[in-house]
Design a protein around this nucleic acid. Structure first.
Lengths: 210, 210, 210, 210
DNA sequence: AATGAATGAGTATTCATTCAT
DNA sequence: CATGAATGAATACTCATTCAT
């Protein structure tokens, strides 16, 4: 009958979720009004409640919409690339990582920091699906470097997230100080990676006592 | 039980501010009820409003109470120490930095990330009084190392905050994933500093062309 | 009992305004609770705030609802009547004026006296739309009487509101002393008009030196 | 011991009452804060409550402080003057009446109109001590004029307050429209008195049927 | 499916009043 | 007498949620 309506039916949840993402990103959870989300999505409040039972429901849907399948992709890329650890880090890894500070992940980080406390299940969810896997991949890469003689055995094997730490640093810095400072995140990240690789390289002559 | 009248005008603001700090840290700005802050402080709502005109006022007082005078202290320490750059970084700097991830700064960071958006003046305040100064000190130390031949000339001169980036990383990580993971922030920070110093050291034979 | 949903968007504002008029009339602005207005209107507080952004908004709407279009009507009546000034004053004018002391204008007067101070824009509004026009009509009538020889030239041309002053007098008197005294406002007003016309009449032989 | 203190002790209530009068005049009863009154009076809130048990108490004291003993004085003046009714009205009465619209009575009127409703005892008090007596004096004067042949018998004998009605009119007008219009109350009152006397004069040839 | 009028519990803020000092 | 810190009840206003249409 009314294809216009039917065609949109499937898209509705996503439309609302996107509007909500923008709203939550701007104001945080508590300060975001459901009314506003509905208005942004061009939908009535009533309809919104048809798709999401509560405001919290909507919030969770927003957070979940961030699942980064690229994490697994990164893992695959590494295994299929046949590259050495350093080459992979300097190549695909660095390229990927440099895109993050200006990606929508900023929103996710902001929301997790602000609201994570109240939604432990979401934190758990992200930990399991994204973060711990990411850390696992990093560990695998470093281990691979050690195994094939590229890298020394360093404490980085126990805290591989150090390799990716500048991402979080840049995201936070940009989120908070965007008005005060234009951080050159590319350079910062590259420098960090350079330093890490120096540190990891087995041919480095210094004694790393600790 | 408690005497109704305590007549301790001077201590009150600090008492209230501390209670508010705890409350804001737990729930964020919007989700914190003034009523609760008053209760925590063992004070009536009315009294709270005698000292702070609005909830926002209170919030700002909390944030401002974080001024880290230790920043300047660090600067002084460096200049008076007579230590070389590396020695200073490995010594007093590292010691100081390792205390941060578990200090109340966690709260500050959380609040700045969650609510900074809404209070640009506070962000500005912190930028001016704390962050930009901190960055300045880092730069001065590195520059000193370059000047006296300890360090190579690297991009770290332009993004000195990289030296301190793990602090923010650890704070965020612990804030969000305290239930999932016990991050060994000491090791992470030490490893990072080791790596940075390797990278900076002039005697390092590699070409850092980048 | 009452259906929760009445869906009568159009009538709502007027219903609320009327309830508010009664409440404000009874207690004045500050002492009227929005809750009470809502209750009187048989409506929830929330709905009230859907139509009026603030309590002051509501107050202004109430005051504005008093616009007396009869003012202009009076002017037209005079011009179309073809009556002489005295005949008009003794006829339509007197009839109209006698209705006022017991009309809802009492409320308006009370509110303007009590709250006018705080709402200068409302006073201005009424001055412009009602009072100054009313004074203008009075002046026109008297001037007409002078022009066609009915009336002498008297100071009433400069203070024509004197002709209508008993209205305000009666309203105030009744408002304040309703429990102490039953003022016969009809007689008072008629007497006043009689006196004014005597005074105005050109054939009156006395010298008005003043 | 402390004559400074003791000397003021007696004056305190009056000082507070005056400050309160100013405050109530500006804002009305409900919108006046006891704090403000105390501050205006240069006194602590606690002391204020030592003299006046409640805010309402204070209000009543303010209102009562207005008792116009001049009312009785006017009555005496009339009886001792030996003047005829017209001469008295044109003389001492007019002079007295013309002072009123700009006297503090404005405040009293405003307060009675705004708050009288809530304080019937005050209204009663004023009715008995001031207003009904004033009306009585007016009636006596007019009656005297009738008795000695100066005046005709008119309905003014039943509504003698008409003679004084412009006072109230001017007070209200000035209170409400001070920003819009500079009413020449002297002229208005004089004109009104002229007209009333014309009307009252027995030698006036017209038939006053009503 | 879609709307938006209607609800009411919840929150910031004010201010008369008290009372330890 | 005098103070002003302290209280808490009262009140304007918001917003998630419901439901007749």
């Amino acid at each position: 009958m009314q294809p216009r309506y039917q065609r949109r039916k499937d898209a509705r949840p996503a439309e609302i979720t996107e509007a909500a993402m923008a709203a939550f990103a701007e104001n945080g959870y508590a300060a975001t009004r459901v009314d506003d989300v509905a208005k942004r999505a061009g939908v009535s409040k009533g309809l919104l409640y048809l798709y999401f039972k509560t405001k919290e429901d909507l919030f969770k849907a927003v957070i979940r919409s961030f699942i980064a399948p690229r994490i697994d992709q990164l893992s695959n890329t590494f295994e299929k690339s046949g590259l050495g650890a350093e080459a992979f880090i300097r190549g695909p890894f660095l390229a990927f990582v440099k895109t993050l500070p200006d990606s929508p992940i900023r929103i996710l980080v902001r929301l997790m920091v602000s609201e994570g406390h109240k939604h432990p299940d979401l934190v758990e969810y992200y930990w399991e699906h994204v973060v711990s896997r990411g850390v696992g991949i990093l560990k695998k890469i470093i281990q691979h470097g050690v195994d094939n003689g590229e890298f020394r055995r360093t404490p980085l094997l126990d805290t591989p997230q150090l390799l990716a730490s500048p991402i979080l640093f840049c995201v936070i810095w940009k989120t908070v100080f965007h008005a005060q400072d234009q951080l050159d995140s590319d350079t910062l990240i590259e420098t960090h990676v350079d330093a890490m690789l120096d540190y990891l390289n087995a041919h480095s002559p210094q004694e790393k006592s600790r």
